[in-house]
């Protein structure tokens, strides 16, 4: 950007309550998630700026069998206020919306009809399918009925978190409610952003790419390659200790203090595809392995059953 253009750009941001420092930090975080260099930051900035200049793209956020952790993760995005107020238009989101009861139902109905084929649907939580979906309802309709009525009308659907993507914890054995991820439950393909919780930078990167009309390449489990192409192990800062046979055998030990490899304590990093070590969480503060805890494989389908017991090697 030219100097004057740049100044105008930051002036406009200031008016939205976003400082230049905040914005650059934010873009650097996004760049880390998308695996692009810092020069790609301009591209990110342009996409957000473009999005902020016209009508904001409508988003319908559905809550099914979930714990609201994915919404909470989204709320941890730096400058989330600017995203909600100026970047996207959150038409329906049960955790933050003012309306309740039939006024809330009205918002959902109006958004889906007014923006048919144009809205982005974000799904949090999995869908109960046994017994006609009796295990979960909103406003008297089962999750299954709501999913079938809303999701096919979206321009694109993002399954946010492991529950929406693959079933997650409600689907752990014995899966009493027959919970399934969105694609398994209703046969509509989705962009899957697993994680328990998912990294909010991966959500933002996906939205930015979508607004930029960039193709988003997915792996066999529907995960964007920009974030999920490599394992946690491949990107782990403790990898050299693995290669040197330097392992932690007990929590709280000298080896734990030295930051040795957690493989022998059950770390699932080698089987888990995600960008936690590079994107990190909460503005780059940390991620589980940095905090000395083995990876539990939370972005893999079925991890509650396939990766447990968590503290044993598999």
């Amino acid at each position: 950007m030219q100097k004057t253009e740049e100044k105008e750009f930051y002036d406009r941001l200031e008016k939205k309550g976003v400082t230049r420092r905040d914005f650059l930090k934010y873009c650097t975080g996004l760049a880390a998630s998308m695996g692009i260099s810092a020069t790609g930051v301009v591209q990110v900035a342009n996409a957000i700026e473009r999005a902020a200049s016209g009508p904001r793209p409508p988003v319908v956020w559905l809550h099914f069998g979930e714990c609201t952790g994915c919404s909470e993760a989204f709320l941890r995005t730096p400058n989330v206020g600017a995203i909600i107020l100026e970047t996207i238009s959150v038409e329906y989101h049960e955790t933050i919306m003012a309306a309740a009861g039939h006024q809330a139902e009205k918002s959902l109905h109006e958004a889906v009809e007014a923006h048919k084929g144009k809205f982005i649907c974000i799904v949090e939580g999995s869908i109960a399918t046994s017994y006609n979906g009796a295990y979960g309802k909103v406003g008297g309709r089962t999750f299954l009925e709501i999913a079938r009525a809303v999701i096919p009308k979206a321009a694109a659907t993002i399954a946010l978190g492991t529950c929406a993507a693959y079933g997650g914890i409600p689907a752990a054995a014995p899966n009493p409610g027959g919970y399934k991820g969105v694609t398994d439950a209703i046969g509509v393909s989705t962009i899957n952003l697993p994680g328990c919780p998912p990294n909010p930078l991966n959500l933002l990167s996906t939205i930015v790419k979508y607004l930029n009309k960039e193709a988003i390449e997915l792996d066999e489990y529907g995960r964007p390659l920009f974030a999920f192409a490599e394992t946690v192990h491949d990107r782990c800062p403790r990898l050299k200790h693995f290669e040197n046979d330097e392992f932690v055998e007990e929590f709280g030990s000298k080896e734990a203090e030295l930051g040795y490899c957690l493989y022998n304590l059950g770390c699932k990093g080698p089987e888990t595809y995600n960008n936690c070590p590079t994107a990190k969480f909460n503005e780059g503060t940390s991620f589980p392995i940095q905090a000395g805890h083995p990876c539990i494989g939370c972005s893999e389908p079925g991890f509650w059953d396939t990766m447990t017991p968590f503290y044993e090697e598999i």
């Binding site: 009508p55 904001r56 409508p58 909600i84 107020l85 238009s89 959150v90 038409e91 989101h93 933050i96 919306m97 003012a98 309306a99 006024q103 809330a104 009205k106 918002s107 109006e110």
Partner: peptide, 9 residues
């Protein structure tokens, strides 16, 4: 586009 403030009381 009132988003989360739509249809409040």
């Amino acid at each position: 586009q009132l988003g989360p403030f739509n249809n409040g009381y």
